[in-house]
C-alpha cells in the first residue's frame, strides 16, 4: 500500500526522545495518508554523519534527515546564526527569534533542494569541565573542545586566545577520559545520555550557547507528493515537533536535578567574566561575517532579539 517511502537518517540514538517522537509523527502520517506515505528511520548514525547523510540525499538513497546545526550549516550556512555564543538568555527569546527567522530559513533551505519541516533542539549548552572554572582566566587555562566543522565556536575561542581541540562528538568522551580535552559543551540531558557528566564534574551554570537541529526532507521527493499528503506531513509536524521541544526542555530540567543530585558542582560566572565573554563574542562576530553567516541574517537576528527584549 505504501506509495511514497521516505528513508530518513539521524545521528540521534534509537530510543532517545528525538527518535521516539519522530516515530509518533510518522505513525500519524501513515494513518492520515491511508498508509500511502511511510517513513523509515535509520537512527544512531548508521547512515553516517550529517555530511554523509546530505551526500546520500543528493544521490537519492536517503530522502530526509534529522540534522544537527553544525552538519546542515555546511550546506545552509545562515542556519547557524542561532548558535552564536551567549546570544539567548531564555527559551522565550529562542522561540521568538526562531519564529521570526523561520520564513528566511525555509527559503534558504529550498534554494538547496531541502524542504524545512521543523526545528529540533538539544537545548542550552553549558561549559562542563574536569576543572573548576569560574572566571575568564580559568576558562583559558583548560583544554577546550570545539565540534569539528563549527566555524563559530572556533572563531569565538580563538578571539578568547584559546586554541580549541576539535573533535567529533563520538570522540569527546574518551578524550575527556584521557585528559585530551578538559572543558566541553553540552546540554544537561546530552551530558547524561552521552556520559560526559561522569568526567566533566564542574558545570558552569550560565548558558554558553544554544544547540539545535532541523528535520528536513528532499524537496524533489516532497514536491512529488500530492498536495493533501504534503498537508498531512505539515499538519503532523505542527502537532509533534512542539511536543518534542517541550519534551526536550523537560528532559533538560530533569537532568539538571539529576546532575545536582549526583553531586556535580554548579558554578556561577562572575559578571566581569560574562562581560569579557560578550565583548570578545562581538569582536569575533566581525570576523565571522560573511564567512560563517551573512550580514543580513545576523542583523535580522539581532533585530528580533531587541524587539523581544524591548517589548518586555
Amino acid at each position: 500500500k505504501t506509495k511514497y517511502l521516505f528513508k530518513i537518517a539521524t545521528l540521534a540514538p534509537a530510543g532517545s526522545i528525538w527518535v521516539e517522537q519522530f516515530e509518533l509523527f510518522s505513525a500519524k502520517i501513515l494513518h492520515d495518508t491511508g498508509g500511502e506515505v511511510r517513513f523509515r528511520i535509520y537512527a544512531g548514525g548508521v547512515m553516517g554523519d550529517d555530511q554523509a547523510m546530505l551526500r546520500k540525499m543528493r544521490v537519492g538513497q536517503l530522502h530526509g534527515g534529522g540534522f544537527t546545526m553544525t552538519g546542515i550549516s555546511l550546506r545552509v550556512p545562515d542556519f547557524r546564526v542561532m548558535g552564536i555564543p551567549l546570544l539567548f538568555e531564555s527559551y522565550n527569546e529562542v522561540d521568538y527569534v526562531r519564529k521570526g527567522l523561520l520564513p528566511e530559513f525555509k527559503n534558504q533551505f529550498r534554494k538547496h533542494g531541502l524542504e524545512f519541516v521543523a526545528m529540533t533542539e538539544v537545548g542550552f549548552i553549558y561549559p562542563m569541565s574536569t576543572k573548576p572554572i569560574s572566571n575568564y582566566l580559568m576558562f583559558k587555562e583548560t583544554k577546550n573542545w570545539c565540534p569539528s566543522g563549527d566555524p563559530i565556536s572556533e572563531t569565538f575561542m580563538k578571539s578568547l586566545g584559546i586554541t580549541p581541540i576539535s573533535l567529533t562528538i563520538p570522540d569527546v568522551l574518551s578524550s575527556l577520559q584521557s585528559g585530551l580535552v578538559e572543558t566541553v559543551y553540552n546540554s544537561f540531558y546530552g551530558s547524561i545520555i552521552m556520559q560526559w557528566f561522569t568526567k566533566a564534574h564542574y558545570i558552569v551554570d550560565f548558558p554558553y550557547g544554544y544547540a539545535y537541529g532541523v528535520f528536513a526532507l528532499s524537496s524533489k521527493k516532497f514536491n512529488a507528493l500530492p498536495a493533501e499528503h504534503q498537508e498531512a506531513i505539515n499538519k503532523a509536524a505542527e502537532i509533534y515537533f512542539p511536543i518534542l521541544l517541550a519534551e526536550t526542555r523537560k528532559s533538560n530540567e530533569e537532568s539538571y536535578r539529576v546532575l545536582a543530585d549526583r553531586g556535580n558542582e554548579f558554578q556561577k560566572l562572575d559578571a566581569e567574566t560574562i562581560k569579557i565573554l560578550k565583548d570578545k563574542r562581538d569582536l569575533a562576530m566581525t570576523k565571522m561575517i560573511p564567512g560563517a553567516v551573512s550580514e543580513k541574517i545576523y542583523k535580522r537576528t539581532v533585530e528580533l532579539l531587541d524587539e523581544y527584549r524591548n517589548q518586555k
Binding site: D49, G60, T168
Partner: peptide
Amino acid sequence: DIDISVVIIEMSRLADTP
C-alpha cells in the same frame, strides 16, 4: 536503483574515523 556513487560515499566515511 540506488546511484552507485553511494559506494564511494560510504568509503569516504573512512576519513571521519580518527
